[in-house]
Design a protein around this nucleic acid. Sequence first.
DNA 1: TTTATTTTTTAGGTTAATCTAAAAATTATT
DNA 2: AATAATTTTTAGATTAACCTAAAAAATAAA
Lengths: 219, 219
Amino acid sequence: MAISFTEENYLKVIHRLSEATSEDISTNAVAELMQTKAASVTDMLRKLAEKGWVNYQKYQGVRLSAEGEKIALSIVRKHRLWEVFLVDKMGFNWDEVHEIAEQLEHIESDQLVNKLDEYLGFPKTDPHGDPIPNKDGVLPELAYSHLSDIKAAKTCKLMGVAQDSAVFLQLLTKLNLSLGAKLDIQEINEFDRSIFVSINDAAPIFISHEVAKNILVKI
Amino acid sequence: MAISFTEENYLKVIHRLSEATSEDISTNAVAELMQTKAASVTDMLRKLAEKGWVNYQKYQGVRLSAEGEKIALSIVRKHRLWEVFLVDKMGFNWDEVHEIAEQLEHIESDQLVNKLDEYLGFPKTDPHGDPIPNKDGVLPELAYSHLSDIKAAKTCKLMGVAQDSAVFLQLLTKLNLSLGAKLDIQEINEFDRSIFVSINDAAPIFISHEVAKNILVKI
DNA sequence: TTTATTTTTTAGGTTAATCTAAAAATTATT
DNA sequence: AATAATTTTTAGATTAACCTAAAAAATAAA
């Protein structure tokens, strides 16, 4: 069935919200991420339900149907593959690619996506460490920890980020934190939960809890 | 000023029609290429004129303004660069890329277009031999002849095509005619204007005038 | 368990791009 | 030059996606 850019964006947003919870997603939560009003969301949810892409009962929130999930994953796949393309082939920085990938994710051609995947060497993650669904919509298992959850001094490796806002990514770049960086945690301060850490064997520095929450590491 | 996909497509179509003539472009001609009705075109032309992208007087046809021309050329540039990408990097055939490039041409990022141009080695033509405008909208001079215009037996080289319909391109492929092919014209038949020609030194075959009209060659 | 607050939905409108049918202007033909 | 044929425009509707304001339902607080 034909699908519009807008419908694709709604499915993507509902999918993103569903990853963080097992509850149904509220109209307001969708409205906020879609940068629109709740009334508009209600209209769209009814339409998406009619098309069979979401399960929606009024006042009860929304969740993706199996088919909706499949569509959402294919958009996520495209978004992340294009991000790899933009960074690896076009030479963009990881904080510059989100906007462009938001456009490219709507290009419709399974053939192109699969050729692109191959051209990029079947990457498992995008430039922010987020997993890329394969052609059947299966996400590779990554299972990383949030740096903020680590309780004791140890060594780990930066594998991803939990946010791709440009300001956050630019801060990481300033701190010399990029994918694959080695982190030797020296000390965790009880007071403000800041972390004193050496990055790639450099002199240790302080990282705020706020930042640590958005850093994914392999122990 | 903000521009919609639809507006971009109208400008592109008007540009394409303007290449073939110095006359103003009729509402019906635009309607046919846009696959829409004349009434819809009238509405859009008024809007494009308000935005300053075309000169339009009712009942008198339309032509691009300097600014409209600039926009149209940037779309053509993107379309043709993406076609090169699809053929050279993704491994598509030249008859498979038009549809996908129709989508990709609307991606908005000057930075991306210029990086893509560089990545592809600043190509002068797309996979059909059509010239690619540079970043300032300047078209490289190519000045090729239509095979159908050649009057005497001689040798020439296939440099482009005047049409990118899949059926036409597939026919060329069947005839072993691709960009760069050597054509030794043996004879031109007065009766049906068909051409008896040897392609890359193979046994000569007949090519119809209809096909020859759409083949561009360098003598 | 009422009352207050928040969330969500409905009702009614707007805008961009399209359509059909009818009117007006242009062009072609006697 | 008058009439016929064609082209183009206007008028009035439709659809998708959005909006505001008001009503209804759900949730939280007294």
